[in-house]
Nucleic acid binder design. Structure first.
Lengths: 205, 205
DNA sequence: CTCATTCTTGACTGATCGTTCCGGAATTGG
DNA sequence: CCAATTCCGGAACGATCAGTCAAGAATGAG
């Protein structure tokens, strides 16, 4: 054998992910990536291929992160409407964490590259299907438990929630504040509980 | 005086708008713009300034187009829930018209440039406020007419609809089909009429 | 006609882009 | 030690970018 890699390839990939997340694909140069990842230009090409392959790897890393932080709690057997609500509030807080709004790498990528890049589009569709499945699962639990109407359609509601969350992301990137985003989430959540007119937990000033 | 401009500056601007719409700002080169607008390189710089100024003008042209085609019907005195529904269906059909999904120029711009470009961000915010105001107006009418609950909050519902429509745009760009988008719209519309469980007009196959 | 203005074509600048190649230092297993 | 492999800095590639400049043809007002 010979000299092993001296840097953490997955840690460097996370740095690349952050940069793509903040700036987008086209606006991020290899020079910036090299600086942010803390490796040499040569190592980048040796390890990840080229810029496009690195971006695809960064997308995978991002999806894995979302899977653990956002979707996994929804897939637990005990998850119900409360877990869904916690996730929504968590997403809002996640979106407004940085003053320079980054929204979601997958959503950004959808608008920037999906129509022109088949490999990216495939990853985007897989991610959306995964998110929709997680929502459907928790909605099934909620319905079995009587938290939502027995006549509700988990398939339609899951797709509706996927749409809703992406709308919130766009508005977050436009600069909307936490109360505005939480208000939208609360209004959307009213869809799931037709009995209660509009449950607004944290919007009043 | 002397020789007047030989091309229609607003028609050429629309061609630039189409190109920015389809490709985004960074991915569109001045060479492509010159070819699509049918004018010379020199005329472009003489007439519009530079690429960034041309883009801002294209954004204005797009907002004006949306104002006429989408928001104006909502602002008419007779507009109510039916007008809102027609607008939503019109937006969906608008989004899926081209196989290469272009979504909405303002939404695309929000994700690509808003956090890094103050002039663009200002236009985006003004556009969002305008859209929200149009929704609020029609919701006021609908409430006065008894089409939605008297206890409903038009402010919150208007913001909710703005979020919803942007979510639909993102999903449209990811490749979602017409039935999926109409299903989301129908589910979201159910929020406005709590009496009717879920009104699905055109989703059945 | 005269002159000011706009038109088109084409070449050019300086910068940046992604990518490749080189040379030498460092670090591992055999 | 030796051979293999990875590291780094830096130079260089061809391509593309936004923007500028120059020169000649066209057009319209006075």
């Amino acid at each position: 054998m010979a000299r092993p890699k001296a840097f953490d390839t997955s840690a460097a990939l996370l740095q690349a992910m952050e940069l793509f997340w903040e700036q987008g694909y086209a606006a991020t140069s290899v020079d910036q990536l090299v600086a942010a990842m803390g490796i040499s230009r040569q190592s980048l090409y040796d390890t990840y291929g080229d810029k496009h392959a690195l971006f695809l790897a960064a997308l995978d890393a991002y999806c894995a992160m979302l899977e653990d932080a956002m979707l996994a709690p929804l897939k637990q057997p005990g998850a119900g409407l409360q877990a869904l609500h916690d996730t929504a509030v968590g997403v809002v807080d996640f979106l407004i964490r940085y003053p320079k709004r980054r929204a979601c790498l997958m959503a950004n990528t959808t608008l920037e590259l999906a129509p022109h890049d088949a490999a990216v589009a495939a990853k985007v569709r897989r991610h959306l299907a995964n998110m929709e499945a997680a929502f459907r699962l928790v909605l099934d639990h909620a319905r079995a438990r009587g938290e939502i109407a027995a006549g509700a359609d988990p398939d339609a509601l899951a797709r509706y929630l996927v749409g809703m969350i992406h709308g919130v992301m766009v508005l977050a990137k436009s600069g909307a504040d936490r109360d505005t985003l939480l208000g939208i989430v609360a209004t959307a959540a009213g869809m799931l509980q037709p009995a209660i007119p509009v449950s607004v937990p944290a919007v009043q000033t």
